[in-house]
Amino acid sequence: MSFLEALNGRIRIVERAGSWTEAVRISGELLAADGLVTPSYVDQMIRTCEELGPYIAIAPGVAIPHARPEDGARAFGLSIVVVREGVYFGSHNDPVHLLIAFATPDRSAHIEFLRQLAEILARADEIVQALIRLESASQVQEYLRDLLENRS
């Protein structure tokens, strides 16, 4: 499943978030609203980060909130939250503007997603700067489509 198929339009742009916790919760609730995860999965996304540190902020401006398959992941899927003003995880990669949350019911279903994620991370600075200037979820969708699919 490609990045955009897995995303399936679950995109939210917010001006600001009160904390990284709130930003992660928004990303998780987008997954929960479509039945991809249980509400406890969303809680676990936050708890994991509290317990293990801000390691999910993996590139400048980008974090990938997730929990374990057994924490309540029902199907594979992604969501994207763009926080224009950024949130702070206490990471070298702060401020984080782009959250790419994911759920996967098993440990191998998301290899293609990870490959496309690699393309995004390799150009994290440029992509984050572009995303925070976009006005709507559909513009974000179009931007990502150009980025991931319109390559020669």
Binding site: C49, I56, R115
Partner: peptide
């Protein structure tokens, strides 16, 4: 290695 062994760890393994 990553916190849960599912996301970033797999990504790192490939790289």
């Amino acid at each position: 290695a990553c916190g849960l062994g599912t996301g970033t760890a797999l990504y790192l393994k490939m790289t």
